[in-house]
């Protein structure tokens, strides 16, 4: 049974449609939610948390409706918001254990879990100091700690590597991966940085303009297609047309023709087409189909994959 189900979930603001009839099921896994800024990622997370009400459609977590069973669901959900969310005059220990209690943990358990979780995110003696003096990296760790202190079953992370330096990013991503594997939580990581998402997720949901581009195991995103880039001095459009007439999925981008391929067949066809048209061939290059291409296609108005 899916952990999260979305059924024609729609959120409209005056003049903007943030989510457009999103229908989707998410199974327990580390799920990457990718899309450019403004694609609707944060909106989706906020609807799941009950922070925003959807305009129409339905969303359930653990098979409970997020609009009516919010307080029950949220005992088992953790959230790391994109923005700063820490009171500077409070220590990490006091803050995280308070947040654990607000999630329903008894006081003693909240204290105990806080100490444990802060150690897991790598905060030691600093945890008794007021958070106003923390570095961005430390603040981000506290935000993660408050999100997992009540041992949620579902963890929603909104841009968890925001503002971190490269080393900090690596550590945060490692932590995210651990929460999914070792801690046994289902994690939804929203990010506009595909490179990061690729490193930690097993499942990928790509949205753009509030619409679902694609949802699949990460493996199928990368293995399924390759792209053959054929660079010619001129006549790229003719070559693309010739290849399409031979049954290939080809399109011209500037002086390059991109050919989708799943087997070796296109190589011969490209060679023949180039010879027939007598075009000056400069380069023939196999590109790994990268996630960015999904978005390039979406922006140029073509259906994704």
């Amino acid at each position: 049974m899916p952990l999260i189900t979305l059924d024609a979930l729609t959120k409209r603001y005056p003049g903007v449609t943030a989510l457009d009839a999103l229908t989707l099921e998410i199974e327990p896994a580390i799920v990457g939610l990718v899309g450019s800024n403004g694609a609707g990622k944060s909106t989706l997370l906020k609807i799941l948390l009950g922070l925003l009400a959807p305009t129409s459609g339905r969303a359930t977590i653990f098979d409970l409706d997020v609009r009516t069973r919010g307080t029950e669901i949220r005992q088992f959900v953790g959230y790391l918001p994109e923005h700063d969310a820490l009171p500077p005059d409070t220590s990490a220990t006091d803050f995280v254990s308070h947040m654990a209690e607000i999630s329903g943990l008894p006081r003693a358990a909240a204290r105990e879990r806080t100490a444990e979780v802060l150690r897991h995110v790598g905060l030691y003696e600093e945890r008794y100091r007021a958070m106003g003096g923390y570095s961005t990296g430390m603040k981000q760790r506290v935000k993660l700690a408050q999100a997992i202190v009540h041992d949620p079953r579902l963890l929603l992370l909104d841009e968890p590597t925001n503002g971190l330096d490269p080393a900090g990013r690596d550590e945060m991503l490692e932590l995210v991966q651990r929460t999914g594997t070792e801690f046994g939580m289902t994690v939804v990581v929203a990010s506009h940085l595909l490179g990061e998402i690729e490193r930690v997720c097993d499942f990928l949901v790509a949205i753009e303009g509030g619409r679902l581009l694609r949802a699949a195991r990460l493996a199928t995103f990368t293995e399924q297609t390759g792209v053959l880039a054929v660079e010619v001095d001129d006549g790229a459009d003719e070559l693309a047309a010739a290849l399409v007439s031979r049954g290939l999925d080809a399109r011209a981008v500037g002086r390059t023709v991109l050919v989708a391929f799943e087997d070796d067949r296109p190589y011969d066809l490209v060679r023949d087409a180039v010879a027939d048209l007598d075009l000056p061939l400069i380069r023939l290059e196999q590109r790994r189909h990268r996630l960015e291409d999904l978005f390039a296609e979406a922006h140029s108005g073509e259906p994704a994959a």
């Binding site: 948390l49 029950e72 607000i102």
Partner: peptide, 12 residues
Amino acid sequence: HQLLSLYFSRAL
């Protein structure tokens, strides 16, 4: 300090 989203995303 934008804490409301943390409170409202809990058991309240």
